[in-house]
Design a protein around this nucleic acid. Structure first.
Ligand SMILES: [Mn+2]
Ligand SMILES: [Mn+2]
Ligand SMILES: [Zn+2]
Ligand SMILES: [Zn+2]
Lengths: 146, 146
DNA sequence: TTATTATTGAGATACATTCTCAATGGAGCG
DNA sequence: CGCTCCATTGAGAATGTATCTCAATAATAA
């Protein structure tokens, strides 16, 4: 069992909940990659590997994973949202290709700092934020030109 | 007729489309305020003022307004999106209060600049972006404490 | 006028997500 | 162990936003 799964188990038990096989399988699926997975993909992968977990349980467990702080839910625009685990994966924002759908990450610490200042100026207490840049990735830029 | 409505009429006609009363009434509703309106609000307002325009026409006309460049569609997270007109309203990003729903604007030119650099570094051609900061507005911060 | 084309509205459809509720099955107790 | 009790689950219904379909209507062109 991966250390992240261990941590999730601890979180679940500390909350007085049960660490069921369904919850475990959803967690392991999410922790198995650093890709940006949406709920439906998690469900499909689980089905293909024989784990049985319903759509409702997948959504419910993803919420728990987010609550545990081990997973972040990101909004990719147009109603799309995805999950990625945060272990060994510092905060970043996303470049979203509107042609091929690729999601690339970027870090810009100064942007984070400037956001904090903007909040201070407005007397706003930030809980989280979402920054997406939409456009053409390097690959699609070429193929559109060609 | 407001100058923005005039411009929209011009846009519509240049495209070879008809400037119908429905399209006019949707445009005037959007241009009547600088608030962040969602499609359903536009529809409701139109109904209350006696203008008849169906949901489908509201959505279709909002798309045209965005295409004209006179209106921007913004993504407020959780599937919410809103429209605001851009005339005399330079680009800005949003502080979204997760308690009362208030949407406050802020400008941070340096953030915009840093985004451009991030795109350059990644060979990414940006078309647009969305930056929302979620949290408690100044007012809700107080009432939560109290 | 008549033919052609654009626009509209009502409702159907799509889609992601949440909800409902009966069935399941651990956990704790005597 | 057997028996409650209650958390959990799954199937499908419901939700909310947005888009699509298509027949009726209105504008334009011939
Ligand atoms: Mn990421
Ligand atoms: Mn705004
Ligand atoms: Zn691409
Ligand atoms: Zn507030």
């Amino acid at each position: 069992m991966k250390p992240e799964t261990q941590q999730f188990m601890k979180f679940i038990e500390t909350k007085g909940l049960l660490f069921t096989t369904e919850r475990k399988s959803v967690a392991e699926e999410v922790f198995s990659t650093h890709d940006h997975l949406d709920a439906e993909e998690v469900l499909k992968k689980l089905k293909s590997t024989g784990s049985k977990a319903s759509r409702a349980t997948v959504y419910r467990t993803l919420d728990l994973l987010v609550e545990s702080g081990l997973v972040e839910k990101i909004d990719l625009g147009e109603g799309r949202s995805a999950y990625e685990h945060t272990a060994g994966h510092p905060h970043h924002d996303h470049l979203v290709c509107t042609v091929c759908g690729e999601v690339r990450e970027f870090e810009e610490p100064l942007i984070e700092q400037l956001q904090e200042w903007a909040c201070e100026k407005a007397g706003f207490r930030a809980i989280g934020h979402s920054l997406n840049i939409y456009g053409w990735c390097a690959k699609c830029k070429l193929s559109v030109k060609a």
